[in-house]
Structure formats: C-alpha cells, structure tokens
C-alpha cells in the first residue's frame, strides 16, 4: 500500500507534469530544429513566434466565449487553434518574404541570419505586447480535471490522490497526434522527403530539381503550426504571458541541442530529458520518501535538491553534461 501511495504521489507531482511539460518542450524544440535543419540557423524569434500564435488563439477564444461557443468539457481554445495556426502562418510567411528571403538570395552566412532573427524577435516581442499587453491571460475553460484527487481516492481507497488535469491530457494527446503527423509528412510524402534532402545536402537537392523556396515555404508553415500548438498547450496548462514565452527559448534550445540539432527525433527526446530533469531535481521528495523509507529514516527536510527557481540551471547543466560526452547531442544532429 505504501508503495502504491508513493507511486501515486510520484505520478501526481513528477511524472504527469513532466510528461506534459516535456511534450510542450518537444513541440517547441521541433520547430527550432526544423529551422536549423533547413534554414541553417537558430531562430531566436521562436519563443515570440509561439507567443504570437498563442495570442491569436487566446483572442479568438475570447471571441468564441463571448459568442457562447464552447466544446463542452474541452477547452474552447481547441476550437480557436486552427485560427491561431493560420494567423501564425501568415506572420511567418510575411516575415520570410520581407526579411529572410533577401538574405537567402545573398547567400548570407547563417550567423547573419541569427542576428536577423534577433531583430525579428524584437519586433514580434513588441507586436504581441502591443496587441494583448504584457499580462497573464487565462483562457482555459471547460472541465478542469479528467480525474480529480477526490474521485481518485474514492476509486482506489488510497490515502494519496492523483489528479490529471484536462489540459495535461490534451497536451499529451495533441502532441502525439502532431508528432505522428509530422513524421508521416517528413518520411512518407514527396515534399517531406524533399525537405530532408534539402537539409542533408543543399547542392545535391538543387541538382535533383528540388525548389529551395518551396522547401523553405513548407518549413515555415510547419514551424508556425508547431509553434502555435506548443504555445497554446503551454498556455492552457499554465497561463499565457508573453515574457514567459520569450524565456521558454532557453529550455527549448537546450532540448533541441541535447537531442542533436536538426534531428526531429532528438528534439522530442531532448524535450523529455529536459522536462524530466527539471521536474525531478526541483521536486521536494519528502512526500514520496515518507512512504518508501522506514519510519525512523524518514527525512526531516523537504529533500528538494534545488529550488524551483533554478529550473533553468538544471536544463543548462544537463545540456553541458550531454555535450561534454556527446558533442552532437543524444541523437546525431544536423540532419532532418
């Protein structure tokens, strides 16, 4: 019984939140890794792209709520998601047209594009705050829990409860669907394969008649979709605040690099590695150990390795350790 209780506590406070957070990071990192693979630079504006897409979702959600539209137990935001994706697609395509394309024609070095993306980051950052303001927006509605603590206790008779929030469930399900779609697209369709080919060997792709502008176009479209989905899931699970999204850049980069930049599988693995280490290291283990250890060994302190404020430090430490041993990341990087 004690063991079961410990397991329940562990799932409730570590496993489930980490899986949800990991899915969000993985989706974010996929976007970064695709841009890196195809356009060859790290997009500093990715956090703000996520924020923009999510902002559109939030605004459309508010609109639907004011119309009384809802999905019943599911959050209205799911209904607004396609509009967010479309909005984000328009934004990135306009950006590509107005900004990035010129540098491609100039055959600019990737690091120049990194600096360009800083400029784009400033603009998107300002744009989002200009439209929706810098404050928290709560836009999750519908049923709050799939299983609440009370229900779980009644169901199992355990003294510890397990809660699965709707947003966590939705996060995981959506992430699985999106990732499955993405891999199907990259591995099975002609366009997807041409994207991988372009990422692998630009010259040879050109000789094979692959049109780079088309590849870039599809990349941006996919990245916009991924960013909006990742941002919306994160916002539903926590809350939407432009600055937080900007800050997500670090764990997202860390996830993409840990997994191996340019490798989609790596981005997913990296997302979960980062999420799990952040959550485990900043979790107070007292409650779990209480059930597992004999009474006289019960810890008096919280047994929290690091305060939650150091979660960035954790992502970063993991990153350094991985890079020291595997310089190209867990999965071999640099290929889509």
């Amino acid at each position: 019984m004690d063991f079961l209780n410990a397991l329940v506590v562990l799932s409730n406070f570590v496993l489930i939140p980490a899986v949800a957070y990991g899915s969000q990071l993985a989706l974010g990192a996929l976007g970064v890794t695709l841009i890196y693979g195809i356009l060859r630079f790290s997009n500093f504006a990715h956090g703000d792209t996520m924020a923009f897409g999510t902002m559109v979702v939030v605004l459309v959600t508010y609109l639907f709520q004011s119309w009384g539209l809802s999905l019943g137990p599911l959050p209205t935001a799911l209904l607004a998601l396609p509009f967010g994706i479309l909005g984000c697609m328009v934004l990135v395509l306009v950006t590509d047209r107005a900004v990035y394309r010129f540098y491609r024609q100039q055959k600019a070095k990737p690091v120049i594009l990194v600096i360009v993306s800083m400029g784009v980051m400033f603009i998107m950052n300002g744009l989002v705050r200009f439209i929706i303001g810098p404050n928290d927006q709560r836009f999750a509605d519908g049923e709050r829990f799939i299983i609440s603590v009370r229900e779980f206790k009644q169901m199992t008779g355990l003294s510890e409860g397990l809660a699965i929030r709707t947003t966590q469930g939705i996060t995981v399900v959506t992430a699985i669907i999106v990732v499955a779609l993405l891999f199907w697209f990259l591995n099975k369709t002609r366009t997807g394969k041409s994207m991988r080919a372009y990422s692998d060997n630009e010259d040879l792709a050109l000789l094979s008649g692959i049109n780079p502008e088309r590849v870039v176009l599809y990349t941006w479209l996919i990245v916009a979709a991924l960013a909006t989905v990742a941002g919306t899931l994160y916002g539903l699970d926590k809350t939407f605040k432009p600055f937080t999204y900007f800050q997500l850049l670090l764990p997202i980069f860390a996830a993409a690099i840990v997994g191996g930049l340019g490798n989609p599988l790596g981005a997913i693995a990296g997302g979960f590695v980062i999420a799990f280490s952040e959550v485990t290291i900043t979790y107070a283990w007292k409650k779990v150990l209480k059930y597992l250890l004999p009474e006289n060994l019960e810890p008096s302190s919280l047994v929290q390795l690091l305060s939650t404020d150091y979660k960035f430090a954790v992502s970063f430490a993991i990153l350094v350790v991985v890079l020291l041993f595997k310089p190209t990341g867990l999965f071999k990087g640099k290929s889509v």
Partner: peptide, 10 residues
C-alpha cells in the same frame, strides 16, 4: 520601442 528597435536592426 521594442518594435522600433527591431526595425532599426533589420
């Protein structure tokens, strides 16, 4: 000002 800075850079 954030937007302006971005535009100046670009």
């Amino acid at each position: 000002r954030l937007m302006t800075m971005g535009i100046v850079l670009l």
